[in-house]
Design a protein around this nucleic acid. Sequence first.
DNA 1: AGCACGCCGACT
DNA 2: GTCGGCGTGCTC
Length: 820
Amino acid sequence: MNKYAKVVVSNNSNHTDELYTYKIPEFLIDEIKKGHRVLVPFGRGNKPIEAFVFEITSFEEINFKLKEIIDVIDEKPILKERDIEIIKWMREEYMCTFMDAINCMYPKGVRVDNYKVVKLVKEEFDDLEEREKHVLQELINNKRKIKLEYLKNKIGKGIESIVKKLKNRGLVDICWEYKSIKNEKYIYNISLNISNEEVDEIVKVLIKKRAFKQADVMNFLKNNPNIQLRDLMNLLNVSKQSIKSLQEKKLINIEKLNYYRKPKINYIVKNKKINLNEEQLNVLSKLKKTIYKENKKPFLLYGVTGSGKTEIYLNIIEEALKNDMDSIVLVPEISLTPQTIARFKNKFGDIIAVFHSKLSSGEKYDEYRRIKEGHAKIVIGARSALFAPFSNLGVIIIDEFHENSYKSEMNPKYNSIEVAKQIAKLENCILILGSATPPIEEYYKCKTGEYELLELKNRANNKEMPFIEVVDMKEELDNGNKSIFSKKLFEAIKENLESNNQIILFLNRRGYASFISCRKCGYIFKCLNCEISLTYHKIKNVGKCHYCGYEVVIPKECPECKSNYVKEFGIGTEKIEEEVKRYFKYAKVLRMDKDTTSKKGSHEEILNKFKNKEADILIGTQMIGKGLDFENVTLVGILSADMILNFPDFRSSERTFQIINQVAGRAGRAHLNGRVILQTYDTEHYAIKHALNYDYEGFYEDEIKIRNAFNYTPFNNLISVVVYGKNEKKVVDNTQKLYDSIIYILRKRGYEKYDFILGPNPCPISKINLNYRWQILLKDIDIEIKLLKSIIKYICIQKRELIFNKDINISIDINPFNTL
DNA sequence: AGCACGCCGACT
DNA sequence: GTCGGCGTGCTC
């Protein structure tokens, strides 16, 4: 019976994003399985390309002749059944191609090497031009076959037409060939299959048959019981054939070992027992109970800062290991969590694989292999670690799962939480989403019963959360204090410095000032490539664009009106540093933001310095808020909560609440009492009021009402379609066309109200890197999200050429984290 | 996308 | 005539 494979071809194109059917040749029928990588001839020229088998069928569906699969690439399938399910799901969910999703699962880089060759068919020199003869002669000299590329180098331009002419006369043939990259690296270990005593006898027989090489090998093996094939071939200068025939005579064993196979390690779990408190034990026992339960719900682990979530993670992973199950731990940004990683490594040692985005593709592949071969049982890393190829997944943990790094910014623009849920469902494994400030839409799912809520309400050391004092900056201004420090914060810094305690100052913006302008004519320094004002960096006296990296020296004179009234406005971490140094001359200050941590390892360096008390004050942006323990910090100053609050995004309240919570949690973690001072112009805002009391539940209740009233998530989905390109007019026209097409389809389907479509509008950042950006936002109000997606897919992907210009790009994001 | 093929102007 | 440049259309 004929068998057919439906495959996805490895081609970065929207036009080939479908399943292609190939006939499986006789010799591969038993070999090819779902998930295998294969080589198929594709296109008119039958170029051999890599493809992934998604289905195998045995009936003929199509009546035109099918091409045959050339070969399988790997010994074992690359994709598991559930990987294929996830790929299909991601393609639907995020409107990406099969290949976009496959690229998440399988490290790219090692791909098929293909090239065109010219083959000699007939030797006939009559009526040929000089250069044609030359080509023919080359072919005769080179075993009648030459790479086209090689000929191009030898002959130069015009080779294509020469070869074509030769082809038309039937003298040569042009076709594609490939060098198959078999990815598996093997070691062949050779040993005797007979006893040493028998060897001499055998050697005599071999010599009689004039098989001298084989005799050499046998003699060698008598003295060296174990050797690798490669070494044996080099040392004795024997061919593979000689060794093979020895194997056929059953005189030797050839053992195929995987290159990565190390001596099997028995992993040691260090039993430095930390006594869990009652709350933790309770949570843990609930988790353990579900390990073998069918149809698990995802767990939302709501644990206040310092409640010992990590300890729960370590324990449940240990439990999984006992049951021979693997675990995945996602952390927001690997470089920000050295302490967490250290704790995992301490406990589990060698069986941990670490995934960062900064691994080279080779390193990534090595880690991939380690996992695939079962040498790593735990992977810890950023969102890409989610796709680790474990065979028996038991637990997925997403730590600090409110962090927006879990949403991919690149195609496919997936949300790790959603993908994790999908994987957990298919693998029937435990999914733990841990946070001190869960996203509103996720916490909502506890209320609806989609998640099971686990709570850690107390800090492990039983310390109260530090008291947050709020300072109204409007009042400060009325009292004539124009500085960036309120009187209260100023006094507190002074006190803490005197008593030799450490201080953290938090501000959500790097640089010195948020913009630079001329006070006379109002000129504002802007990026040349982006529609964004430049941030002033005083140390280098430059204006920097935080979107494209553009930098320009700021002149004293206004380029517009030539006056001397150029001045910077707003505050950034650089300015805080300057002010602190001005007021507190003897304080030692460290600054941690994107500017001071660009070098590798500079992160840890700053943190270590601060931990070792080499500085009194740490000034920083968001990155100081991530799971760091500093015992001697007794004061945290949040300089301007408004900066986040006034951000033009529906999540800004939530972000504010989260950041205050995170940053405040840095104070007083050990024996000392902490104090937090929060400066804001908006003391009455509900996010700030609830944050002061660490009242997540209260904040949730207020926020969910707003989400409901304005049709935001979790009540509605949002789709953002951004149209961008270098030509502003084309961008505007194309966005309008997109809008018109959506309306046209909706009207045909009987819709009359279109108020769920916002736009077309320019994006809040209307130009980035010379690309003008326009946007249409759609919500699934009174319309099915599926329908909405299918309409957008139809217009933006399937009929793309009909509607959009060639130099126009489209970016579709389902439930984006921001709509800039 | 990326490749093959074909149509058309340019040039020995 | 034929070279090669680009436009067009298809990929099991």
